[in-house]
Every structure is written in C-alpha cells, then in structure tokens.
C-alpha cells in the first residue's frame, strides 16, 4: 500500500465513481459542449491512476487487469478504423459517415459517436497502460511516492 492515511483512502473511494461518470458525460456530450473522446479518455484514465496511486498498483490491477487495458487500447483504434471501412463498404469514402444513417445528418451523428468512443477507449487504455508500466517498476510493484510524505516534499 502506498498511502495509509484513511482520509486519502476514503476520499479516493468516494471520488472515483464521479470521475468515471464525468468521463462518460464528457465522452457522450462532446457533440454539444466542450469535450470529446480524447478528454474523456484522459479523465477515465485519471480515475484508475488515482486509485492506483492511493491503493497501490497491484490492487488497481485487480480492478482493471493488464489484458483488459490492452484489449481496450487496441479496440479503440480498431473501432475508429472499422467505422471507416464500414463507410467504404457502404459505398462512400473512408470515414464519410453520411451513409451510416437514414439521413446524412443521422449518419454523421452515429459516425462521430462511434469514432469518439474509439478515441476515448484508446486514450484511456494508453494512459492507464503507460502509468502502470512506469509505476510497476517501483519496489514491490508499487510506485515509491510514499517517500514524499516523509521528506515533506517542499525542500
């Protein structure tokens, strides 16, 4: 375990679900407000990284295993590219979503939703993968940030 302080642990437990919810909001509300797949992916990754920081990498890895992050990582790009292939198969150009729906606008909407989701998956997978790859190198598979507590961190 990295942070044994109960306050941090409890606050983390409370705050992780809202972060994930906010990531989903940013993901699917990107058409109407600021945000989109990239930001959503980063926020989603932040939730797991926060959990990993406070509870330790091995505990966080039980919540989201290495295999799962890798599948998500690859599936995102595949969904993006696959959408392009589907539009090609339906007779339009690569990534021209207009053919996906009954009307061009509906098609565009569906296509944007799909590829934004793909971007979100890949970004979230990449950020989680990179963080755990780095953090997994510390002692006992944990990131050795607890030294900061003792050192005061302000020297």
């Amino acid at each position: 375990m990295i942070f044994k302080a109960p306050l941090l642990r409890v606050v983390t437990k409370i705050i992780v679900p809202p972060i994930i919810l906010f990531a989903l909001y940013v993901q699917f509300h990107g058409d109407f407000g600021p945000g989109g797949g990239f930001q959503a992916g980063v926020i989603m990754a932040a939730a797991f990284i926060l959990y990993g920081l406070v509870y330790g990498v091995s505990t966080a890895r039980q919540a989201i295993t290495a295999d799962v992050t890798r599948v998500i990582l690859a599936l995102g790009v595949l969904l993006f590219g696959g959408t392009g292939i589907v539009t090609m198969l339906m007779g339009a150009e690569f990534l021209d979503y207009s053919v996906l729906g009954k009307t061009p606008l509906a098609g565009q909407h569906l296509g944007i939703l799909l590829i934004e989701f793909g971007v979100g998956m890949t970004v979230a997978g990449a950020m989680i993968t990179i963080f755990f790859a780095f953090a997994g190198h510390g002692k006992d598979g944990n990131i050795a940030l607890d030294q900061e507590n003792e050192g005061g961190g302000n020297d």
């Binding site: 990107g30 606008l105 565009q108």
Partner: peptide
C-alpha cells in the same frame, strides 16, 4: 455534420 460544437 450536425453537432452544435463545431470543434467536434
């Protein structure tokens, strides 16, 4: 395209 957010 449709979405109100032009950036998207």
């Amino acid at each position: 395209v449709g979405p109100p957010n032009i950036v998207t």
